Amino acid sequence: MSTAKEILHASEASITPERTVSVDVAQSVDDVVELMLKKDVGLVLVVEQGGTYVGVVTQKRALQELHHHGSQIPRETAMALADAQYPTVTGDSDAGSIAATMIEHGVRKLPVVDSGELVGLVTDADVARHLSDTASAGFLRELWRRRGRETDDTGPKYTGEDAL
């Protein structure tokens, strides 16, 4: 079974401006939100200089903080919003364990971190391509169920709510 590193290489999902957006811990929340809007992403990886992984800022978390703290939050740094508990996988994690981690936590994207360094970001689509057809269908169906979406054999049913 393919490992996270192999999945990143095969799908060209390694850190590139098109696929993965990261910010330095010292960048302002205002900068993070502006970058999310500019790049049309819902998850930004937070790193220290040199690429040491710190956590992620999700669109949902940024919106919650802006809602609760209003104009004061843009002066905070990315570090203040970074979720250091967000699940990660290692480069040696196989596609099956990555899929299981996504299902367990109800997330569609996972940072790949080796020895504290950010290696890349894998998505549910990346992982599904590296599973058998049967395993892929079961993985995606269970992930959507876990995320509160109804599915049938044709895939997820759109409920009118935007998934983060």
Rank of each mutant, 00 (worst) to 15 (best):
V46C: 11
H67A: 15
T123E: 00
T134K: 12
G50S: 06
A10V: 09
D30C: 07
D40V: 05
M1A: 13
A26P: 00
H130E: 09
L43S: 01
Y53S: 07
A78E: 04
S93R: 00
G91V: 04
G51F: 10
S97C: 00
L164R: 08
A82N: 02
K39V: 02
Q64L: 14
D40M: 06
D83G: 01
A13H: 03
L45N: 03
V107D: 00
A13F: 05
L66W: 12
P87D: 12
T3D: 04
L121E: 01
D152I: 06
V57E: 04
A26W: 08
T20I: 01
S14C: 05
T154D: 13
V56D: 02
L43C: 03
S132E: 10
R145H: 15
L45G: 00
V41W: 01
R75I: 06
S93E: 11
G155F: 03
T159W: 08
H9N: 14
G155I: 07
P74E: 00
D31P: 00
S136D: 09
G120F: 08
K39R: 15
D30G: 15
S14V: 14
T159I: 13
T101N: 02
G116K: 07
V127Q: 01
A4Q: 05
K38Q: 15
V89A: 10
R141Y: 09
Q59I: 06
L35R: 08
T154K: 12
V56I: 12
D31W: 12
Q49D: 14
R129M: 11
Y53R: 08
D162K: 15
L63T: 11
I7E: 04
V21I: 15
D83I: 02
A62H: 01
R147T: 08
V56H: 01
A99G: 02
D92Y: 00
E142Q: 14
V33R: 04
D124N: 11
L45A: 05
E150G: 04
Q49K: 15
I15F: 04
L37F: 00
L35P: 06
D126C: 10
Q59N: 14
R141I: 12
M79T: 06
A82M: 05
L140Q: 15
L140I: 15
D40E: 14
S132C: 07
T58V: 10
L43T: 05
V56M: 06
D162A: 13
G91I: 02
H130G: 08
T20C: 03
I98P: 07
A26Q: 13
V127A: 01
S14A: 12
T20W: 02
T123V: 09
G160Y: 10
H67L: 12
D94E: 11
V56C: 03
A125L: 12
A100N: 13
G138R: 13
S97D: 15
E34H: 13
A95R: 02
L63A: 13
S22C: 09
